[in-house]
């Protein structure tokens, strides 16, 4: 899970499971899909900041726990 990962490290997305088709495909269009790299920049208890391709995003707990790395 992304929230258990170590900040500053780049991981490969293993699985994305939001139970929400539209959300999955939205993440896809940002470049966040299985096999692609994702970097955990920083994390808090209930949210984290990631780098996907050349953009930075803030994700909430729900979304970050749906991204398995």
């Amino acid at each position: 899970m992304l929230l258990n990962a170590e900040p500053g490290k780049t991981y490969t997305v293993k699985e994305i499971n939001t139970d929400d088709e539209e959300m999955n495909s939205f993440l896809f269009r940002l470049g966040c899909y299985v096999g692609e790299p994702i970097t955990l920049i920083s994390k808090k208890k209930k949210s984290c900041i990631v780098a996907i391709k050349d953009g930075r995003y803030n994700l909430d707990e729900l979304l970050s726990s749906a991204i398995i790395v």
Binding site: T18, D19, D20, M23, R56, N58, D60, L62
Partner: peptide, 9 residues
Amino acid sequence: RKSFFIMEL
């Protein structure tokens, strides 16, 4: 309903 939040910084 799952309310996801994603915001580009």
